[in-house]
Computed example of a mutant assay.
Amino acid sequence: MENREESRLTSAELANLWRLYITENLMYQFKTPLIDNCQDPDIRSAIEFSRAISEHYIVSIENIFRNENYPVPTAYSENDIHPQAPALFTDVFCLHFIHQGAQLGMSKIHEMMAVAVRQDVWEVLNQGANDFKDLYQQSLQLLLTKGLYSRPAFLPPEKESRFAENKHYVSGWLGNQRPLNALEIMSIHNTIIQNGISKAILRAFAQVINDKKLRDYLEKGAETASDIMRELEDWLIMENTNVTATLDSEILPTETPPYSDKLMMMLIANVGVGSLGVYGNALSTVFRRDLGLKFMHLMKDAVQYAQEGLHLVIDKGWMEVPPQFPDINTR
């Protein structure tokens, strides 16, 4: 049996639980108006399941924090949503958002499980991981059934396995370029999907947010996401492969905000973290130098945009910070 010292939360467990609590609390509040305004019963069921996953984490992590005498994060509340506001997104957008969230959730939770030591922490994460898998399948089947799923390109089968014949395989700036391989197509496709969702959220929030400075920031992000999608789609067009449809038409015309400015800005920050993960994965899988350089630039620009957003939310007093070591200079 572990003694008290050994059974305390490690810094890794504390960090992941804190981050997960903040994120799932945010998502719980964000999904509430989506459920209230959803017209399609199948899609509403998927959103409700997604919100139930968020609730599982909120309740479980609160219990762990209280038992360990850590303060429960303030996070968000029903005060950050406006129940009487009209719908901002169509059901189609909601389904895409839920599906993308399930994908990211599966990835992130397994990373957290890999550093979980305590059994209760591992069990909380594992239950959520299983739920995210079920949500992924539920949302995927809905997208397929409704003809909304955007498949990556298909590649014809080759006669035999191949090896790079020369260093031209990793070139990509000058002269003839080799065709994109499957890993590169996957990375481009995933990046377009992530930016399509990001752009729709940015444009929708810019449409209803109250603060002009924040609105300008969101509009800048939407234009950047649009530019990224166009450039990456050009690579697919050169390979004569299919291009992913945008979600621009899934934003509804309203100027009444369903959320507080704080919630909208912090959701954008959360989406930005997801984009950085997609860019990082892409950078680790592409071989052509032109693609590698492109994803490096995307990461740099995303970090700069995120920093600009952090400065805005810090100025507003909205940025809650994770637990840290005591400052010895204040003792």
Results as ranks from 00 to 15, higher is better:
N3F: 09
E6P: 00
L9K: 01
L9P: 02
L17G: 01
L17E: 01
W18S: 01
R19T: 08
L26M: 10
L26D: 03
Q29V: 04
D40I: 12
D42I: 09
S45A: 15
A46G: 06
A46L: 06
A46S: 14
E48F: 04
S50N: 13
H56G: 02
Y57R: 00
S60E: 15
F65C: 07
R66Y: 04
E68V: 07
V72D: 10
P73V: 00
S77D: 12
D80K: 04
H82P: 02
A87P: 03
T90D: 07
V92I: 14
L95W: 09
I98S: 12
H99W: 08
Q103C: 08
L104F: 13
L104P: 03
A114T: 11
W122N: 09
V124T: 10
L125R: 06
L125F: 15
K133F: 14
Y136W: 12
Q141A: 15
L143H: 12
L144R: 15
L148H: 12
F154C: 09
F154L: 14
L155H: 14
E158N: 12
S161G: 05
A164G: 14
E165I: 14
S171P: 00
W173R: 13
W173T: 12
L174C: 11
N176M: 01
Q177N: 08
P179S: 11
L180G: 00
N181P: 00
A182K: 09
I185Q: 01
I185A: 00
T191L: 02
T191Q: 03
I192K: 06
Q194A: 15
A200M: 10
A204P: 01
A204H: 03
F205V: 04
A206T: 08
A206N: 08
V208L: 10
D211Q: 09
K212Q: 15
E219P: 04
S226C: 02
M229P: 00
E231R: 11
I237V: 13
I237G: 00
A245I: 02
A245Y: 01
D248L: 03
S249G: 01
I251W: 01
P253R: 02
T254G: 05
Y259V: 01
M265H: 06
L267W: 14
A269C: 11
N281C: 07
L283G: 10
F287A: 13
R288W: 04
K300H: 13
D301T: 09
Q304F: 07
Q304S: 12
E308Q: 13
L312E: 02
L312F: 10
K316N: 05
E320L: 05
V321W: 00
V321Q: 07
D327G: 01
